[in-house]
């Protein structure tokens, strides 16, 4: 298997075309991504794996419009986002993309409920209460809504972040090691929810992870090494992923 995934624009929620990312200049230049092309299908749960420093986070940031590639193009749906200006890109993140970060997902001054509808409020819109309530119920957060982040456990905080990511019905949700700081029970809960969001709500989710078990919740796993997409696997199991990772030398 090689990195020649066929590009299918019609069903791709996001895709990268030949993107490279270099950090630094001169001798100190680091190539975090080297001519990577990927297509992420709508309605699919994709995991990105690879050894530390292989460029997973970098790829995710490029796809999510948090940073710009040195060369190449990124599309979100049919929109080429690489040349958008900061304002357009910001509005795109606000309206079309959901985020779950590894930590520090929430504003400490706001309650869980306020954090969940943050992007919608930033846009100056009214949240869809029924929709938000259904997500909150699915995540079991109903009795935690008035709490401040400091009054929530790490798992609860990540669930609030997940609720926020889905609240505005984004085209795609990006998650960078969302379970990285959680114990396995909390992690399992969150992954279960993401899986459900894909299966039941048709949400597109892209997740970077180190954990083969987490990857096994996905429909497809992309393997990165040294700034390249080196392989992929569909319907992964934890054991298969683990084997492959060992093979990669991570």
């Amino acid at each position: 298997m090689s990195a020649t995934t066929t590009i299918a624009p019609a069903t791709a929620a996001a895709r990268a075309e030949g993107i490279s990312k270099f950090y630094g200049t001169g001798d100190a230049t680091i190539a975090a991504l080297k001519d990577v092309s990927v297509s992420l299908d709508a309605g699919m749960f994709t995991a990105i794996m690879g050894p530390s420093g292989s460029g997973k986070s970098t790829l995710l940031h490029m796809l999510a419009g948090l940073d710009r590639p040195t060369s190449g193009e990124v599309f979100l749906g049919d929109t080429q986002i690489t040349s958008l200006n900061d304002k357009a890109l910001t509005l795109l993140r606000r309206d079309q993309i959901g985020f779950i970060f590894q930590s520090f997902n929430l504003l400490p001054t706001m309650s869980a409920a306020e954090n969940i509808v943050l992007p919608i409020r930033i846009a100056g819109r009214k949240p869809d209460d029924i929709w938000v309530k259904s997500i909150v119920d699915k995540l079991g957060l109903a009795d935690r809504l008035s709490h401040r982040p400091t009054e929530l456990s790490g798992g609860q905080q990540q669930r609030v972040a997940a609720a926020r990511a889905l609240a505005s019905r984004p085209q795609i949700v990006f998650a960078d090691e969302p379970t990285g700081a959680l114990d396995s029970a909390s992690g399992t809960e969150l992954l279960g929810f993401l899986r459900k969001a894909v299966k039941e709500l048709g949400q597109t989710v892209v997740m970077v992870t180190h954990d083969p078990t987490a990857a096994s919740y996905a429909d497809r796993v992309l393997f990165l090494a040294d700034g390249h997409v080196v392989d992929e696997m569909f319907e992964p199991t934890a054991d298969a992923v683990l084997d492959f990772m060992k093979h990669l030398g991570a």
Binding site: D86, R93, F99, I122
Partner: peptide
């Protein structure tokens, strides 16, 4: 964080 989830510079 605010910028990431869509707050504009303005």
């Amino acid at each position: 964080l605010l910028r990431a989830v869509g707050m504009t510079r303005a």
